[in-house]
């Protein structure tokens, strides 16, 4: 759930999503779900000449499983908090059975 939790904080930020088919889409993150499916608004495709069919597309829904990378806006990420969240996540996973 850490990634889900993390991506939720990026809603309304601009992200760039790199898909497994090398398509690279930049847009405003509108929503994300627990499968890390992603909804983008006002999208731009990086290599527009190669994908002319996407020139007119304004928003997309991306299935989480086809995402290779998400480029994050650095200033929207709280690294220290992310470390703590990771600790908690690890703690939950380890203590999950015992607790």
């Amino acid at each position: 759930m850490l990634f889900f939790s993390f991506f939720k904080t990026l809603v309304d930020h601009e992200v760039t999503i790199e898909l497994k088919n090398d398509l690279c889409i930049t847009g405003t993150l509108k929503s994300v779900d627990q499968f890390l499916n992603i909804k983008l608004d006002e999208i731009r495709v990086k290599d527009e000449a190669r994908y002319p069919h996407l020139a007119a597309v304004k928003n997309v829904f991306i299935r989480g499983s086809v995402v290779r990378y998400v480029h994050l806006p650095a200033n929207a990420v709280d690294t220290a908090l992310l470390e703590d969240a990771t600790r908690r996540e690890a703690g939950n996973a380890a203590g999950g059975k015992g607790r």
Binding site: M1, S5, T9, L81, L82, N92
Partner: peptide
């Protein structure tokens, strides 16, 4: 708090 720690704290901040 356990599952959604980052989001909750981040939102709080």
């Amino acid at each position: 708090v356990n599952e959604d720690f980052y989001y909750i704290v981040h939102s709080a901040i």
